[in-house]
Amino acid sequence: MPPVLETRDLTIRFGGHVAVDSVSCAFHAGTLTAIVGPNGAGKTTYFNLMSGQLTATSGTTMLDGEDISTLGAAGRAQRGIGRAFQITNLFPNLTVAENVRLAVQARGKAAASLFSLWSRHRDWIDKADHYLEQVNLAGVRDTVAAALPHGDKRKLEVAIMMALEPRVFMFDEPTAGMSVDEVPVILDLIQKLKDEGTKTILLVEHKMDVVRSLADRIVVLHNGRLVADGEPAAVIASPVVQEAYLGQAPKAEAAHV
């Protein structure tokens, strides 16, 4: 089966610093790939290159075998690449429901309608509420996003991506900073998406227990380079990973509890 999303020699330079260094990797439908690596390894930058927030210095990004390197973030979102951000990236002065509804609207037919009433698009409202229920935020739907506690903001971030109903889900540390009892909500959601068997899921995650339980495959980035790629057990056991990443893992985990 051909890959859904693929990068070939993807590189980005910031001045003299090579943040992502010719990374070639393919992601297939129905699999969850965890992307791990120490802080500053280029994981989020790699995500930004694939979802179009950054433009690559060289190399290509392919979606369904088609070169999408020249498409911006909007074009990639319209083609089914969904992105949840590590640093919460919401519409702060709009309500929780409005945040999600904007995502639903983006996929709707009348997305740019000028004279219809926003509040009358019942199907958008219902769909947004559906996704809010999935992340347990239905109770705060009318709260302004900026006023949410950190954990709820993370959940809203995920709900916004779910509401886009993408084919490729890119989670960037979805549980970072969440309290212990909130984490399972997000993990169950990711597990459910995975169980559907058709979605392509990419997950940047520091917590190795989460990675072990969810990932079909682990890709390790270190200093912008892809240093390991394969079955979770094999990758975790490989010496290059032990040295590059797992040596620092306890520290990284401690930082995110």
Binding site: A74, F85, F91, L102, A111, W118
Partner: peptide, 23 residues
Amino acid sequence: NSPFGRVLQAIRENDMRAEALGY
């Protein structure tokens, strides 16, 4: 107060996020 107008507000709030939603 139309869908278009809401997108404008979204852009005012966070243009990068609006772009990431496909606008």
